[in-house]
Design a protein around this nucleic acid. Structure first.
Length: 582
RNA sequence: GGUCCAGUGGUGUAGCGGUUAACAUGUCGGUCUGUCACACCGAAGAUCGCGGGUUCAAUCCCCGUCUGGACCGCCA
């Protein structure tokens, strides 16, 4: 028999209808003859009722949780209604009952409020995914992808597929390698992103490309990082930064509207990378709350606090954040905890001052003259019961530690809501950073990013000062996407490779095909990529990427359900001309 | 590569240098005609992750190891 309805749709208007339902037994309640079964499917739960005099009563005795049933019966009004669920007005008085399948005792409760540990959930992922919350996550994921396609299709973008078996390139993340059987001793790499292919498609003249692309990076995992993840990948010809930002903003707004019903009317604000680093300490600022970093190096240099003065003499800086009206919330013990927190980010300590009873208090107070305290009060806009936390170190350490501390404190004090979508563009990124340890330049974005026209000369003099046509979309302190205008001329691309210290030979070996292609009338082009997983995380309010990936990997990059990765037969290795060291 | 947290009936937790290893839930049996976290009565269910050490005695303390999680480094 076919289903006539799903388990989420029957209402009192359906009373007296004869219906056929299918689904899983979410819960059985036997009151001693009178039996209720909550039948669950993708759409919801409908209560089935069996009277004690029903000929089916006997059959209900063998039914257990997660059995799969097909029932036919009449929709009747409940004598006691349940306002908690949409179908709570009615129930189905069952006339025919077929057990489509039995179910073993499940290792976890199939309900939103499961008490199972993540390890158990991952091992029995197919059961975990039966839970309505998880089902909803993947409905949202689907809707998001569809909204993206809808928006881009309407704007004449073409959806492409690019190779999964591709070429290993230097720079960037570690590659996942795939051995070639036919070409023994040689390897494909899985793409970290379809970057070069989408640029080549622009050279081919397709003008507007997009792909919902799987990407692979062999790096350590985090709560928001999986070795394989999905990007909404976009590239266009003849567009400048402004046009890319507009298209992207339109797309995100379309997603918010069609998935969440939220209309974002305002333009997304834009801040520069330099401003983000200065005021938030991080390149992905959470702009839902203030508590900005304030540079007080000048004031600190006049104090007699050796930690500050010697640091400043060594070229370091001093910044502070003002935690408004929180002095009384932070005991010595709690501040010690904050100190431990910043130590993770290589800060050596966390000096503080409290402003209570209209005066400063704290162990470092004695190093400040009354005049300096006035300056401090002004610079940090200090009011009654404020807590001032200081960072004193090299610029990078101060920014990172105070920036992370800012987020951490805001979280503990609940200074924000997850329903506050504070999209912000971070623009004007530097082309390169110079890493002392390796003594060489690294691309901040990637080696195909175009330098700002006005900074072209800086590439010769001081590459680290050159800014790029480069942009990130940030929301709630998370990087949601990023992109750049690309280099479309061979000489500039050569120059950037040179600055990165890639030899001419390696340029030719690794990127020869791109350098070649650039010669044949490459149009100016620009693009962007968004993390689909992170976008869905944002929409379903989870901090765990595994909640939005159907079959994710654990921290150690394993799948506890399938036990991948695993050993293979020696013959397989031999065929691939491979020997393992272990 | 490193730091921290966790691992105890099916599931989730408590516990303590000597316990009959506790609680909740689930499971099984029984009672029950309006439940919806049904209720009530009863029962079964544990190699306390694994290996070693300290001790008269270790689930508990120590070392190692494995697994999961959070983080630093890493992630153009």
């Amino acid at each position: 028999m076919k289903r006539t309805h799903n388990n989420g749709e029957l209402r009192s208007s359906d009373i007296n209808k004869t219906v056929t339902l299918k689904g899983w037994v979410a819960k059985k309640r036997d009151l001693g003859g009178l039996v209720f079964i909550d039948l669950r499917d993708k759409e919801g739960i409908t209560q089935l009722a069996f009277n004690p005099d029903s000929p089916l009563y006997k059959k209900t005795l063998e039914i257990k949780n997660e059995y799969v049933l097909e029932v036919t019966g009449n929709v009747i009004e409940r004598s006691s209604k349940n306002k908690k669920i949409p179908t709570g007005e009615i129930e189905v008085e069952v006339k025919e009952l077929e057990i489509l399948n039995t179910a073993a005792l499940t290792p976890m409760i199939i309900a939103d409020e499961t008490d199972a540990l993540e390890e158990t959930r991952l091992k029995y992922r197919y059961l975990d995914l039966r839970r309505p919350v998880m089902q909803n996550n993947f409905v949202v994921r689907h809707k998001t992808a569809q909204a993206v396609r809808e928006y881009l299709n309407n704007d004449n973008f073409l959806e492409f597929e690019t190779p999964i078996l591709t070429k290993s390139t230097p720079e960037g993340a570690r590659d996942y390698l795939v051995p070639s059987r036919i070409n023994g001793g040689e390897f494909y790499a899985l793409p970290q992103s379809p970057q070069i292919f989408k640029q080549l498609l622009m050279i081919s003249g397709f003008e507007k490309y997009y792909q919902i692309a799987k990407c692979f990076r062999d790096e350590d995992l985090r709560a928001d990082r999986q070795p394989e993840f999905t990007q909404i990948d976009i590239e266009t010809s003849f567009m400048d930064q402004e046009e890319i930002l507009n298209i992207s903003e339109g797309m995100i707004k379309h997603v918010m509207k069609s998935v969440k019903g939220i209309e974002l009317k305002e333009d997304f604000p834009r801040i520069t990378y330099a401003y983000a680093m200065d005021k938030y300490g991080v390149d992905k600022p959470d702009t839902r709350f203030e508590m900005l970093l304030t540079n007080i190096t000048d004031i600190a240099s006049q104090s007699s606090f050796g930690v500050f003065t010697s640091n400043i003499e060594n070229g370091g800086i001093v910044k502070a954040i003002n935690v408004k009206n929180a002095a009384s919330d932070f005991s010595r013990k709690k501040i010690d905890k904050l100190t431990d927190f910043v130590k993770k980010y290589r800060a050596k300590g966390l000096p503080f001052l409290k402003f209570v009873n209209n005066e400063f208090a704290g162990s470092i107070l004695k190093f400040f003259t009354p005049e300096l305290l006035v300056s401090l009060k002004e610079a940090l806009n200090v009011e009654e019961n404020d807590l001032i936390l200081f960072g004193s170190d090299k610029t990078e350490v101060v920014n990172q530690s105070l920036g992370q501390l800012r987020n951490h404190i805001a979280k503990t004090l609940e200074l924000y809501s997850n329903d506050d979508y504070d999209f912000v563009w971070v623009v004007d990124w530097p082309m390169f950073e110079f890493r002392e340890e390796q003594q060489r330049y690294y691309s901040l974005h990637h080696p195909f990013t175009r330098v700002k026209d006005e900074d072209l000369e800086l590439l010769n003099e001081a590459p680290e000062k050159a800014l790029a046509y480069c942009y990130d979309l940030v929301v709630q302190g998370q990087e949601l996407g990023g992109g750049s205008v690309r280099i479309h001329k061979t000489d500039l691309q050569n120059k950037v490779f040179d600055i990165l210290g890639i030899s001419k030979e390696e340029q030719q070996e690794k990127f020869g095909f791109l350098l070649d292609a650039l010669k044949y009338g490459t149009p100016p082009h620009a693009g962007i990529a968004f993390g689909l997983d992170r976008l869905v995380m944002l929409l379903v309010h989870t901090e765990n990427i595994r909640d939005v990936v159907a079959f994710p990997k654990t921290n150690s990059a394993q799948c506890v359900m399938t036990s991948a990765p695993s050993k293979v037969a020696d013959e397989q290795l031999e065929e691939l001309s491979i020997k393992t060291l272990i």
